[in-house]
Design a protein around this nucleic acid. Structure first.
Lengths: 363, 363
DNA sequence: CTGAAAGCGCTTACAG
DNA sequence: CTGAAAGCGCTTACAG
């Protein structure tokens, strides 16, 4: 049966015979070359549809000299909860690449040498390019790919003014705007639960938080800015610690770098018999993943929102364009998260009027 | 630079010229044909390594008439937590398929028509075969692929005696052995927190639980067997409900279909100020995912263990063998989970000696 | 044991 | 506007 299917595959030649045309003309018609007459093009398209023609990808790739395959590395380890995130990107990217006739293949980063996985992939197969995600500052994988001259795009960016294609939200602004919103509501003791310190997006958000607090003249107590795994448990633990302080010293507002952290923070607040936003305001950055909706929080969560899936098509298209020879500087996107105010943020409580006593920002 | 890399690619012809051999002989040598002399084979292999030869996959696929691409469908939706599971399979499968020179591509099942995603993939690309996972009973996707004569393997199985290749653990035994262990410890009120009812593995486990309870003469109270999303929250909720009963009526033991459920059950028990295993025994089925280790539970969790990643290589190899024409009946694996007794299971407490009053098993 | 030849299905200069 | 021809890099009968 599999054999039958193979034998029945319609080729360009078949269509040519059917229509009394050469395979070359059929190819041109199907690929939309301007020199084919409209009548021929229509006849070819009709016949192709009727005969169920599908181009043989392998043949196309052989003649183009490209593999049509793009690589992406999955980090493995205990951080696997971040997969919920990765999965979203993976699936979106697959679809977007398929639309450009490319396939996405995965390899696993086993830890240790972050470049090893890329090396291994490249020596196994000829890959046209890579998608790099979750960059760290001055990312060694990016440096490797740059040095080797291998096409790649980055979801995020690992330096201020990259010379490679990237797509990222403005993570400095994500934190800055959150602080500003809360400060405008009268909050002075604002805690920031950031993501793991090694990621460049967390570094940018940290800067956004610290700069904006400083600009507003709000001191940052030691421990008010922390780096956390994106998990409910981490959010819970961190919030419990921060809320253990005296009434006049504990935060009146939390900004969380992920929805999972926010989930834990909310539970901690409830466990302490405090109310949101009466006693404490909470907001988070929302990647808009399907399993934890900001709307479903009680109360509905105020967020900076930037759907992760929005990055997929741009990244896929940029990579394919880059492989096609486009200028990397034309393939850079810096976009903004959307601030959505819901019910989890409100005016600072009475006892929240005093800022923290000054302490040096951690680190 | 990408162009350079392309132009520098070593071909069979290059090796032939280098060695004064025809491309045909070089091909045979590299592919381990028995008729090539040992000396020639060695010379060819040395030259191939020295020149950095890598076979052009597209050319190989073109002549073989196969795409070298295998499809897998990702379910999407709010069940995305199951991704932690899926991710593990995905990554393992990619690696195992790579070893067989095949690529894995993904598509998304948008819900509604479960077959639509397969159809769409097939009309986009010529795929050599599919991997089907998380089957439901009498799975429509499986029926579709069978009817179309498209090669596929199933992780799990959707009927008792399939005529297709599959790899699955004995899920009936998973539940049965868990019940037996607990019964041997004197437990008579054993609750089962199963996975979502639609999956065939959950159906098998339900049967294993109910049959074994019946065989042991232990009645199953209404509500003792439930179907749950694999989440901590669901486990917590369910355990709270079950523990709300009178002292002599609540379960003395919980069997959980997933580690996430067990995580929630443990939390609920602690919240009720009960001890494990003093008051309540807990065990679970463990897919051996990296993020929730049975050893890290307090106390260390008794489990039936079957690493999900163990399924990847067999499934990948079976699929490639099937595509190569192997007999599907030779590509069926039914394996057993390992029972690992740790510290979360112990003798039934004094007040646990009485079984539940008889009630009809739910459903 | 090795080579010359044909062919997989496409694309694309080169002619006309 | 269309066709004949060459070629992408491999594999594999067919000869010898």
């Amino acid at each position: 049966m599999e054999l039958i299917a193979r034998f029945l595959m319609t080729t360009l030649k078949d269509i040519g015979i059917e229509l009394g045309l050469s395979p070359a003309t059929v190819s041109r018609a199907l690929n939309g070359f301007p020199e084919v007459s409209a009548k021929t093009r229509d006849r070819v398209q009709e016949a192709a549809a009727r005969l169920g023609y599908r181009a043989n990808r392998s043949a196309q790739r052989l003649v183009s000299g490209r593999s049509g395959i793009v690589g992406m590395i999955v980090k493995t380890g205990s951080d696997l909860r971040a997969d919920q995130t990765f999965m979203e990107v993976l699936v979106g990217m697959s679809a977007a690449l398929a639309a450009r006739d490319a396939d996405l293949v995965l390899a696993v980063d086993q830890g240790r040498d972050p470049v090893a996985a890329y090396r291994r992939m490249l020596e196994r197969d000829m890959l046209d390019g890579f998608i790099v995600n979750a960059p760290v500052m001055d990312d060694p994988r990016i440096n490797f790919l740059r040095d080797e001259g291998i096409p790649f795009v980055v979801h995020g960016r690992d330096r201020p003014s990259p010379d490679y294609p990237f797509y990222t939200i403005d993570n400095f602004a994500v934190a800055a705007e959150s602080v500003q919103l809360l400060a405008a509501l009268g909050h002075k003791r604002i805690a920031y639960l950031n993501g793991p310190e090694l990621y460049s997006h967390a570094v940018r958000r940290r800067a956004g938080y610290l700069d904006t607090m400083a600009k507003l003249g709000l001191p940052v107590a030691e421990g008010a800015l922390t780096h956390n795994e994106p998990s409910e448990a981490a959010g819970y633990r961190q919030a419990v610690t921060l809320l253990a302080g005296q009434r006049g010293e504990r935060p009146t507002a939390f900004i969380c770098s992920s929805m999972l952290l926010a989930d834990g923070v909310m539970r901690a607040i409830k466990d302490q018999k405090l109310s949101v936003p009466g006693d404490v305001s909470v907001m988070a950055h929302d990647d808009d993943l399907p399993f934890l909706r900001a709307m479903s929080f009680t109360p509905a969560l105020t967020v900076t929102r930037a759907p992760l899936r929005d990055a997929c098509s741009p990244l896929a298209n940029d990579l394919m364009d880059l492989i096609g020879g486009a200028d990397p500087f034309h393939l850079q996107t810096l976009t903004n998260a959307e601030l959505i105010v819901r019910d989890s943020t409100g005016p600072a409580p009475q006892n929240g009027e005093t800022p923290w006593p000054w302490t040096p920002p951690n680190r």
